[in-house]
Measured scan of single mutants.
Amino acid sequence: MGFKLLSKLLVYLTASIMAIASPLAFSVDSSGEYPTVSEIPVGEVRLYQIADGVWSHIATQSFDGAVYPSNGLIVRDGDELLLIDTAWGAKNTAALLAEIEKQIGLPVTRAVSTHFHDDRVGGVDVLRAAGVATYASPSTRRLAEVEGNEIPTHSLEGLSSSGDAVRFGPVELFYPGAAHSTDNLIVYVPSASVLYGGCAIYELSRTSAGNVADADLAEWPTSIERIQQHYPEAQFVIPGHGLPGGLDLLKHTTNVVKAHTNRSVVE
């Protein structure tokens, strides 16, 4: 069995187990497998329904001669939608809004960016022009300005110390501490036991640490421990890039980060 097929099978099995364990909360999309990078042309966006009122959005972007996937989250909030992270750029984010209108038909009224990198804030200006209120932590807003990236308009308070959590509509926002970046936030959907790890969490097929220019490698494993301790009931975990899975993604990420750190020390 090929690795790609095995990865998709694991996603399907995880979703099936969740649907059985929580039949009222989960209505997993039966329309197909989780979209992969090879299936999404740059400039297009796919939506994948995880649970009743919960979707991931998947886009792709060219970077350094390669094409990478990027995940975000959409959560229903009454007759409105909360968006977590842009679709990595203005063109993708405009396509995301169009796809949401086509498939869901509810307005996106608020959006949260989970850290300051372009795959999370690139497209904020498109959201703002569409009347979406954009939010991020003060740290993310400051770092985005320093980096020359787009800056969300509103500040999220109460997320300055490791372990801080605040309720934001249908989700809980959690600051686990520094990891992929010093400002990275985690998003949890309690009604569906869905954990969105953003770039602080890796997919299972990833074996290298990737972009760690703004990471705190020493603190990252401790931050992941905080996530595990705060959300032990999480059933569906979405990484910032690639295929979702279960809580095993947290341990896998820790292993990859520690291996990278150990290699760096040896070198």
Score class of each variant (00 low, 15 high):
residue 195 L to Y: 01
residue 239 P to H: 02
residue 148 G to M: 08
residue 15 A to P: 14
residue 110 R to N: 12
residue 43 G to P: 03
residue 147 E to L: 11
residue 258 K to I: 10
residue 226 R to H: 07
residue 29 D to F: 10
residue 54 V to D: 03
residue 227 I to N: 07
residue 34 Y to A: 08
residue 260 H to S: 14
residue 147 E to G: 12
residue 264 S to T: 14
residue 257 V to T: 06
residue 98 A to P: 06
residue 260 H to Q: 13
residue 31 S to H: 08
residue 106 L to Q: 09
residue 155 S to P: 13
residue 35 P to V: 07
residue 81 L to A: 06
residue 126 V to L: 10
residue 93 T to V: 00
residue 186 I to V: 13
residue 250 L to R: 02
residue 107 P to M: 07
residue 4 K to I: 10
residue 133 A to P: 14
residue 239 P to L: 04
residue 200 A to L: 12
residue 216 D to T: 08
residue 80 E to I: 06
residue 135 Y to M: 02
residue 187 V to Q: 00
residue 135 Y to D: 02
residue 69 P to H: 14
residue 162 S to N: 11
residue 61 Q to V: 08
residue 250 L to V: 05
residue 68 Y to A: 13
residue 141 R to V: 08
residue 187 V to C: 03
residue 247 L to F: 11
residue 119 D to S: 01
residue 21 A to D: 15
residue 267 E to H: 13
residue 233 E to R: 13
residue 63 F to Q: 08
residue 36 T to V: 11
residue 107 P to L: 07
residue 194 V to M: 06
residue 121 V to Q: 00
residue 265 V to S: 12
residue 216 D to H: 08
residue 199 C to V: 01
residue 57 H to N: 05
residue 180 H to V: 00
residue 189 V to C: 02
residue 64 D to E: 09
residue 43 G to L: 04
residue 69 P to S: 15
residue 54 V to Y: 00
residue 121 V to T: 07
residue 96 L to K: 00
residue 63 F to P: 06
residue 38 S to Y: 12
residue 232 P to E: 07
residue 61 Q to A: 13
residue 17 I to E: 10
residue 182 T to P: 13
residue 178 A to Q: 09
residue 160 S to N: 13
residue 165 A to G: 11
residue 204 L to V: 11
residue 179 A to Q: 00
residue 211 N to G: 11
residue 129 A to F: 08
residue 204 L to M: 13
residue 230 H to C: 05
residue 219 E to Y: 06
residue 233 E to Y: 12
residue 251 K to C: 07
residue 249 L to T: 01
residue 247 L to P: 15
residue 260 H to W: 07
residue 36 T to H: 10
residue 157 E to G: 12
residue 256 V to E: 01
residue 181 S to C: 03
residue 100 I to F: 03
residue 71 N to E: 02
residue 218 A to R: 12
residue 239 P to S: 03
residue 55 W to I: 00
residue 205 S to T: 10
residue 123 G to F: 03
residue 256 V to M: 06
residue 140 T to S: 07
residue 56 S to G: 15
residue 92 N to L: 01
residue 159 L to I: 09
residue 63 F to T: 10
residue 267 E to A: 05
residue 56 S to Y: 15
residue 244 P to F: 05
residue 185 L to F: 05
residue 259 A to Q: 13
residue 171 V to H: 02
residue 236 F to K: 10
residue 176 P to G: 02
residue 138 P to W: 08
residue 229 Q to Y: 09
residue 240 G to K: 04
residue 125 D to N: 13
residue 199 C to S: 03
residue 215 A to H: 06
residue 168 F to L: 08
residue 4 K to G: 05
residue 261 T to Q: 13
residue 16 S to E: 08
residue 11 V to G: 07
residue 70 S to A: 06
residue 118 D to F: 05
residue 253 T to I: 06
residue 187 V to E: 04
residue 125 D to F: 04
residue 213 A to C: 08
residue 91 K to R: 15
residue 52 D to T: 11
residue 172 E to H: 04
residue 108 V to R: 01
residue 21 A to I: 14
residue 19 A to F: 15
